[in-house]
Design a protein around this nucleic acid. Structure first.
Lengths: 126, 126
DNA sequence: CAGAATCCTTCACGATACTG
DNA sequence: CAGTATCGTGAAGGATTCTG
């Protein structure tokens, strides 16, 4: 299914469509927050809503479905009185933790530098 | 590396607004492709267009401006005959390489597993 | 409790045309 | 060559309402 792009292999990691598509699915607006919660403990739907107060129900549902489809989280329906649904991170989901951590560490470490760059840019506009 | 998967102790990976905002700026649709090119060599505008054939001029301009504002790439105007503009990666930009590589390595390594998960999900729809 | 269904606004992105 | 300017569209996401 991936069209063979001409062999302009740059020796390093190339960004393919599949990469881009995957990152869009698992690194989107709310996924990291959800993953962060589920890495610590299984959560029910409303647990997640409380943990991430700014997410809407619709977006949370969509995020969870997407993550579930990609095998990152698991959904279990507990047939109790008022239905309970528990979300858990999968083993595959746990493997995301390291790359995400590295990313966030980078972001945290370089935030000041980046803010200075923004100020300089916005100020002078070259 | 170390286990003790005590999530609380190990990863203070809280997602803050600033994190989210930054990732949106530097991990957007085209940034990784641009970074990938500029990591290898300085490029002129049309070099980048050729290297990333699917990007439109408008999106490429926007991407470059965004990366420049965040201090990730540098823009130099060479006052030659028809104006030449060279884009280069900055030292700050180079520090992005490792987190991005880790991310792409993860994506590459787990792609098959993820595709199986997608197929299973789309098939059964549980 | 855990969503589904609707409506609505924003805006990212593409397509196209023009310019110093 | 390296953009800017405009227009148009689809999709993401918020707000709100309803339900098994």
């Amino acid at each position: 299914m991936p069209e063979t792009d001409d062999a302009r292999a740059s020796g390093e990691l190339r960004i393919e469509n599949a990469h881009r598509e995957l990152l869009d699915q698992v690194l989107d607006k709310w996924s990291l927050s959800v993953l962060n919660e589920l890495c610590e403990r299984p959560c029910r739907f409303n647990d997640l809503r409380r943990a991430i107060p700014t997410v809407t129900q619709k977006s949370l549902t969509a995020t969870l479905r997407r993550l579930e489809r990609n095998g990152i989280v698991e959904r279990e329906v507990v047939s109790s009185r008022p239905v309970a649904v528990e979300y858990r991170i999968t083993p595959l989901g746990k493997t995301m933790r390291r790359p995400v951590d590295v990313l966030l560490e980078w972001a945290t470490a370089h935030m000041p530098e980046i803010e200075r760059a923004r100020d300089a840019f916005d100020d002078g506009l070259d």
